[in-house]
Every structure is written in C-alpha cells, then in structure tokens.
Nucleic acid binder design. Structure first.
Lengths: 236, 236
DNA sequence: ATCAACTTACTAACTCGTCAGTAAGTGTGG
DNA sequence: CCACACTTACTGACGAGTTAGTAAGTTGAT
C-alpha cells in the first residue's frame, strides 16, 4: 500500500495541485470490479482476459490497467472488494457468534442457490489458487485460516452454552471447523456442475448439523471404526 | 491398397490400411500422460503448456500433438488414464462395498497425505472445471455422479447390516453422499494451501463418521435447529 | 518399402503491459 | 472569476512474449 492522501509530496516551494480521483471514479472502479468478478467466474482467472473485463464497462483493456496497474492487482482488488461487500451486507458489521454463525452459514448457502455467478467465481478462484505461484493463494489461505478460527470459536461457544463437558481442544475444534468449511466448498463444486443432482442448502445444513453433533457428543467415542490415527505405512 | 499377404485386415471397403503402433509407443504415451498430470497439477490446465509437458519426456510439443491430437484430448486422456490406474491399483478391480468403501475412502485420504502432487492435480482440474465450456466438465460431473451413487448405495448397505429402521430414501442418501464427497474435496483444497494447519486424513475420517452417524441415526431428529427446509425469503 | 514417430519451421491468435497523446476535470494564484 | 497548472481518465498503437495447431520433411523399425 502506498501514498494516497498524505501531504508527503512537497518537493520545493512550488504548488501541489489537484491530486485526488474524480467524483465518478469510485463508481467506475466498482463497475470494473463487478465485471472482473463475472469474467473470472465464468472463464477463470488465467483464461479470463482484461479485454473481456474492459468490454463490459465500455473501455479498453488499457483503461482497466490504468485503474489497477496489473491483472494480478485487479484480482486482489476483486477479492478485497467482495470481502468488503459481504461484510457490509451483514447487518451489524461483524461476524455472528455462537450458534448464530452456523445459522448464518446455512442462510448463506440458501441464498447462494439464487446466485450461481458469485458461487462460480469463488469456486473457480479457490480451485485455481492451489496451483503454483497463484496470485490469489495468499488471500484464499488467509480466508480459510480466519474462517477456521471463527467457526472453531463459535463451536466452543455453543458447547459452553449447553454446558457440554467434552474437552474441546484447539485440534478438535480445527478438525471440525475445517470439515465444515470443506463441505461447504465441496458441495458448491458439485452443485455448479450438476444443480439438478445436488441440493446445495439442504446438504450444507445437514452436514453442518452432523459435524456439530459429532463434535459436541465427543468424537472419540464414535460408533464407527474408521479412524486409525496411529497408522503409518511407508510403501510406494 | 493391395495387401495380398495378410488376410486379417479388411474392415470395410477402402480406407483402412495396416495401421499399428510400434512396440514402445504405449509406454511413451504413458510417459506423456504422467508428465501432463504433473504439469496440469502444478500450473493448472489453461496455464500449463504442451511445451512443458513435452520437455519432461524429451520431445517437442508437436510430438505430443502427434499422439493426442489436441490439448483438450490430452486432458481427457489424462483423466481416463488416472481412472484406469486407480481402479487397477485396487486389488479386486472393483469398488469396495458397504462399510469397506468408507474405510477405503479414509485410507485414500491417508495415502494422499504423502502424494500432494496427485491431490493438486485433481483439485486444480476440478476447480477449473466449473468454468464455462471447460473440457473436463463432463468427466468431473460424471465422476461425482458415480461417486454419489456408490456412496449412497454403500450407506444403505451399512444401514441394512445394522438393521437400522430409519427410512433412507434416495434423497437422504444423496444428501449424505454429496456431503461426504464435498468434505473430502474441500479439505484437500485447504490442506494444499496450508498443510500445517489442516490434518487431511483425520478431518476426513472425522467428518465421514459424523455424516454416517447422523444419517443412520435419522437426521430428522437433529438436536440443532439449523435446517429450515421450507423457508423462502425473497429479499435483495 | 511403407508407415509410425518424430523434428523443424511456421502461422495466427492471444496475452499483458507500456507508451505517447488527448480531452476533460480540478484547484489555485492573481 | 478566470486563466493557468496540473491531474485524471482514458484511447490506440505497439511490443514482446506465449500459445495451440499445421504442414512438410526425416529417420528408423518392421
């Protein structure tokens, strides 16, 4: 992040003239960000071109670069913009706590059934981000990290509310939290590819409930002998 | 077109000559497929080039095109090749049934912790496949469909074994099956981006157990009031 | 001698990014 | 209040690079 406002530029006794964006610029930049979201969603980041983004707002690709400098920085800006919009849209300006967070997650899944475009953008970018040196990798990683922490904390709050006496250490909470995030993302992929075959919101709600139940019930006493945490095999 | 000696090749009138590949060709093609798997995994499909694939086996990109015709067909061949290898590697040539399937899924997750390359390839291709007109979309969609059916069937087998008297209709089984597939894929994304923070196999085992438990216990009597299947809100 | 399995050479299409130029907007000194 | 100084917000042209795909020629196995 660099200079935007500060009065640091005073090279000589001269006159520092107008140095601020115009009135309609913020709006125009948001148009570009929306267009970029559409393009990166439908074509992916690498395959989506600046020209296609530019065309949607009626300028050339050089005009887009004028605002964002490079394609990588445009992607980052898109992601940060979505973060801002998503948080603002939340009435209260903060992430819900406790059980309310899980209700929020299910509500979001239900809303997402009516906006496949946004789901597609998130899924495409997240999927691409696992490739080497992808510009969105840091953002996605951090997003996952924050989500894990929020969900883990919310889980322990729910446990406290219900005075469950299972010991919920960080490892257990993280395991459940990453599973919940995973199931949400994984269901989105399946749903995008085959909307008829997958009930996005219902499956999400079901899975979250299942994972919460298992966590609060104490997963160590599971009824199914699947996990063998100590096994290590070192073959090819 | 007068092959007087061999009376074995005469499929129809005219066009087909003696058209057989050489001995080492099958092997060479598999080298190319392995190289393509590596490249598509680390760079993604669109961003990975034929030249990089070719370089790994010591030929030029035109040589790769000689064998597979186009980049799209190479991708399809890679996916079909992995299918064949994965099934062959399974001792028995068929997918396990009943509880054994779930043990197999967890074992696979545990194995995958030692082969991030393959996980990366699957994750990258699956992620990219949700973009418009992607050549892998059909393959991924079909793979999900088959997996949902296998897992759903296995779930009902487990229920029958334990003589659970919950009614497990297709919708319920599909819901659980897609959740299990989702959590496996979603955990892989998180794990690839941050291997220190996510325990791939443990989280997978935990989530599968949780979802199985909830399904067999009858999800309708859940302890958490999250799912509101009839709610429809039409706000912005 | 024929054909698979290449290579070399090439094309046409795209890509992002840079640059110079320009019209229009903005703040300030006088 | 207005002309000048200066910036923003572009356009259009272009460069450098990369890409998949084609066409034609070469070599060596069978």
């Amino acid at each position: 992040m660099e200079s935007t406002t500060a009065a640091e530029e005073r090279p000589a006794s001269g006159t520092a003239r107008a140095r601020r964006p115009r009135a309609a610029t913020a709006e125009r930049r948001e148009e570009i960000l929306s267009a970029a979201m559409r393009t990166f969603g439908s074509r992916g980041y690498h395959n989506g071109s600046l020209a296609e983004v530019a065309e949607q707002v009626g300028i050339t690709h050089a005009g887009v670069l004028h605002h964002f400098g490079s394609k990588d920085r445009l992607l980052i800006a898109v992601l940060e913009f979505r973060d801002r919009v998503d948080v603002e849209h939340l009435e209260g300006q903060h992430i819900p706590e406790g059980l309310e967070l899980f209700r929020h997650l299910v509500r979001t899944a239900r809303m997402n059934e009516d906006r496949p475009g946004i789901v597609q953008a998130y899924t495409a970018i997240t999927g691409e981000s696992v490739t080497d040196g992808h510009p969105a990798a840091d953002w996605v990683t951090e997003r996952f990290r924050v989500l894990r922490e929020s969900i883990g904390t919310a889980l322990s709050e729910v446990a406290a509310e219900r005075s469950v006496e299972v010991d919920l250490d960080r490892a257990t909470l993280d395991r459940a939290a990453s599973a919940i995030i995973g199931v949400m993302d994984g269901l989105q992929s399946q749903w995008l590819l085959d909307p008829e075959a997958v009930r996005l919101a219902d499956s999400t709600a079901f899975a979250i409930e299942a994972i919460m139940s298992a966590t609060l019930a104490g997963s160590a006493r599971a009824t199914l002998p699947l996990a063998q945490p100590e096994e290590h095999t070192g073959d090819s």
